[in-house]
Design a protein around this nucleic acid. Structure first.
Lengths: 338, 338
DNA sequence: CATTCTCATGGAATCGTTTCCATGACGGAA
DNA sequence: TTCCGTCATGGAAACGATTCCATGAGAATG
């Protein structure tokens, strides 16, 4: 009675609803109903079918289901750079909610390249029910185009007409600048992230306006990359700017800069105060520990997945969702030394 | 001529080979051949078909392909805890190779729970061509059972009869113990990880044997979890053990312990030398920077994926692959203070 | 010139599920 | 008792791609 087509090379073929149907003596369609639409089938047959299914270790084949329904039960998560520790919490939060909804996450990285991001998004989109675009470097129009095909939620960046989840940098920034101002800082710098990043622009504008409001001078310093190396390399420019405090685009850059300061004998926070962004793993490890603005990436991940699942169900709800940020005080900030 | 069944709610239906067939006036089977088996179709028709496909923005539907072929073009990656920074590099390495082979990665986390790991692995297995089991907490027999259904590669742990990729802790440990011995340490401790972890046992046995060889005493100290908290909580037990150096199961635990030492006024490395494991992001940030044993998780990830892809193709090759480790010298190790 | 072989292509079955439609049994209302 | 609505179930057509088999047109061979 052996299977005559498969060479039985690896593993026996998994059980199908036909196997269950044969055993219980019903039609495959009845099996499908029994398993997916409780109540549509008489209690006794449903019982028998469930038992047989359990016996055979039956699992629905997601590919086969996807064909007629168009639903794959998976979501795509596309980030700009997997190496960045910020994404850990995001992924974790997303994964939690996804699991709760029996949904799998497919995972990809665009290596900070818009072209790669676009092609990956397109390929990914066929295989998933919806896409999470994190810190996208694409243009609004491109994202809107993708969103026309399948539901998309943008994370860490708003896109007109597309649902999004992003931190509201305002509160954390206000706290930061109030603190710096109160301590006596008057000349500060913003150490920038990638130019293509919407969030970078947002942070700069916010910091700028808040600083001006408080009568402080502020300059923007470019960095080569939003990484520790980028921060290290920016050291010279920061020194040249003659400021007493630096707000960094993210913690990685700030940590790189702290390292460079240490190496060059610049005392943090006496000679230079430093504030990062994100509160990533490790921000509290550095010497001195890094003050930072925290936005809950875990929350962002879970909210974004919820929103996306909603959009897939047809909830045209949620335009833009903003999550609050807060200042986290650690040792890298103090009154200016002189 | 509009599509009469779909409510056109979201996005137009993607193009299929039938659309291409209709446009070019050939049979769908010819389209399939033209696209997948170059040379099997006359050059001119292939040309026309490719053009039509490009025009329509055709992408092959992976679900539809998976049904007859049984190949989904995806791999599953199951780790014990996504929060652990060690997995950054692993995921990144895995992702790189996967991309090169036009393969997607599906991603899941078992939250250090063997039951959850088992059920997740089973669910995942249906949707993928092969599974990467990282730091599995399952028993050998369970893994072998899973491996009977579809190809599996175990990472960070060998399993009899199942291909695996794991670090060879020996070289890094030898360097560590030679260094400690040379500096004059005679009483050391091993700060353990999860009991269910094969790797934990491996590290303890190796450290133990090497220490004994060198005439040093060594004790095993339990930790509550392989996290920074676990390391912090182990502080009292470490102090009680009256040792001059500690080898930790991983960097997280070591970093937790460093923090606790700082807080309790125990000077590292003067009063206590510390060596971690993994060289995770942040290991060089702590004060003092953490000496550690590095195994290239990025390599492990890419090797594991290669091996898995090979196994899927039928290469029954690779049994067990071990990657070397090396000691990374930083500031947390010195001669004992007294 | 007849025969065989090759090659491009058409036709149809198949993968596992879902879902629409059909059918027959049964119960209750008239 | 008859008729109709309800309900459980069977039957069959999708979904999109692959692949085996069939077919017919030429080319090659004697």
């Amino acid at each position: 009675m052996g299977d005559k087509r498969r060479p039985a090379a690896k593993g026996k073929t998994p059980a199908t609803i036909y196997d269950i149907a044969r055993i219980t003596g019903v039609n495959p369609s009845t099996v499908s109903r029994a398993l997916n639409q409780p109540g549509r089938v008489s209690a006794s047959t449903e019982q028998r079918i469930r038992e047989a299914a359990a016996d055979l270790g039956y699992r629905t084949n997601p590919m086969a289901r996807a064909l007629p329904t168009g639903k794959t039960g998976t979501l795509g998560l596309l980030v700009s750079d997997l190496t960045n520790p910020v994404y850990f919490d995001l992924v974790r939060g997303a994964e939690r909610i996804a699991r709760e909804h029996d949904t799998m996450l497919i995972f990809a990285d665009s290596q900070e390249s818009p072209e790669l991001e676009r092609s990956t998004a397109e390929r990914l989109q066929i295989a998933v029910d919806g896409l999470l675009l994190v810190a996208s470097r694409l243009e609004d129009a491109q994202i809107q185009e993708l969103a026309a095909a399948k539901p998309i939620v943008a994370v860490n960046r708003p896109v007109p007409g597309v649902p999004s989840v992003a931190p509201d940098v305002q509160p954390g920034m206000v706290e930061s600048l109030d603190l710096l101002h109160g301590l006596g800082h008057r000349r500060i710098a913003y150490l920038a992230g990638p130019e293509a990043s919407w969030m970078n622009g947002m942070k700069w504008v916010t910091a700028h306006d808040l600083a001006v409001d408080r009568g402080m001078s502020i300059v923007e310093i470019q960095s080569s990359a939003p990484t520790r190396e980028g921060g290290t390399e920016a050291f010279a420019d920061v020194m040249a700017a003659d400021v007493t405090a630096v707000l960094a685009y993210n913690d990685l850059i700030a940590l790189g800069l702290i390292g460079a300061c240490q190496q060059h004998g610049v005392a943090v926070p006496r000679d230079l105060s430093l504030i990062g962004f994100d509160d990533i793993f490790g921000a509290d490890l550095s010497a001195p520990a890094l003050s930072t603005v925290r936005c809950s990436w875990g929350d962002m991940g879970s909210r974004a997945v919820s929103k996306l699942l909603g959009a897939i169900e047809g909830d045209a709800s949620g335009a833009e969702l903003n999550l609050p940020t807060e200042f986290v005080s650690r040792a890298s900030v103090a009154a200016p030394g002189r």
